[in-house]
Design a protein around this nucleic acid. Structure first.
Lengths: 215, 215
DNA sequence: CGTGCAGTTGAGCAAATTCAACGCTTGTGG
DNA sequence: CCACAAGCGTTGAATTTGCTCAACTGCACG
């Protein structure tokens, strides 16, 4: 991990874990501002159970948050793309760990967060998680199609998506195995719904088919 | 839908519930104030897509929130027990519909909500939903065991739980079919992990086994 | 005493997982 | 530059899990 700006030990961290406290920053400090950090692929940004001291905004790269069952099964909560903010917690400790899917640059957000921004952030977290629950009610092809459409929407891509994360990451997000993800992608390709120029690059050829699966 | 006129003597069942008498709220409702409403079993409290005008607190009975996929599959988001608050939304419209699992009395909360209370509420919604995602990563016996332990915890019951909701409700919450729920309960009973004096009443006989499944 | 509904149980089936093998890419050292 | 190992992804076969369909039971309510 590489620190490019201010120190993390700075004690003026906004106490995000606490509720009922309303701190309004002085005018002019609104917006996201803080130290910039780099993380290597697959390194941990923070761990489940650690004090939830910071908020992070993705500058470049992709971040995943995940939780584990005791036997090692992993559930990925979300992927965060550039511009997304992660690390918002309602408790004193992180309930998920956050890891770098690719090499990542993040901005540590220490202050200057308005309550309205926090509210907005929490709202999008909640909606994302609710959609995730609905996704897990679907069949394998439906989950994969939903995932592809979601990723295409989030990267504002017309019809091509770069899946930077591994098949294992996708599988743990969708609640499937890597084999099922792989087979489903192949099947979608055979149906001409998508094309797979490389294993990480996906062309959406027939959005209608995908949307139908999306339910 | 909110019904203003009280008509307790009216024996006909209003499709969207009927009003009840005003009473003093039960303990634990400090800060929340509003009209009290009654809804009959299986009536809709509000629908997905309606303007999210109100917050509700359960006084008595059980409420479920749910969403549907286009083909009719239903996903239950949460069950709300007495004391729980539901209807908190981050958008202008409800993303779930809310229905009465049993006959229900609720308090409509229109104002008097502090930002800190809203924050707390949103936080518990988020945590609940995150736990739901993790639950859906589990096997059928694990899901059922987790559900039983959660319900027992929430009703603060030593070792007996009244499952007021139907098997279909449980199945749609756990992402299983009623047959699988039924079979799993039978299996747990055969393993002496639980007892089923009636189909709706469950005795937790061996929490250790259930907790092991809970992962 | 039927009728209807909720829940249970059984048999067969389908979907997804597991286990295993294989291919393709990537990176490394000779 | 090539050889080779390691990791990731794909594919196939067997297995398991949970689902579908169907029958049956118990119970509440007329």
């Amino acid at each position: 991990m590489l620190v490019e700006a201010a120190s993390l030990s700075d004690p003026t961290v906004h106490p995000l874990g606490r509720t009922g406290q309303r701190r309004y920053p002085p005018p002019g400090t609104a917006g996201l501002a803080g130290a910039r950090l780099s993380f290597n692929r697959n390194s941990e940004i923070y761990g489940e159970g650690e004090p939830a001291a910071h908020l992070y905004q993705v500058i470049s790269g992709i971040v995943r948050t995940c939780r584990f069952l005791i036997d090692g099964r992993r559930q990925i909560g979300s992927f965060y793309l550039p511009g997304d903010t992660f690390g918002l917690e309602t408790t004193a400790e992180y309930t998920f760990s956050a890891e770098a899917v690719t090499d990542v640059n993040v901005l540590v957000v220490k202050r200057g967060i308005l309550p309205s921004q926090l509210w907005e952030l929490m709202g999008s977290e909640l909606r994302r998680t609710q959609d995730h629950v609905l996704l897990l009610a679907k069949t394998a092809p439906e989950r994969v199609a939903t995932f592809l459409l979601e990723m295409a929407r989030r990267v504002r891509s017309r019809d091509e998506v770069e899946l930077s994360m591994s098949r294992q990451d996708i599988a743990d997000y969708l609640g499937l195995t890597i084999e099922t993800v792989s087979r489903t992608l192949t099947q979608l390709e055979n149906e001409s719904a998508i094309a797979l120029p490389t294993s990480k690059r996906i062309v959406l050829r027939d959005r209608a088919t995908l949307k139908r699966l999306n339910s």
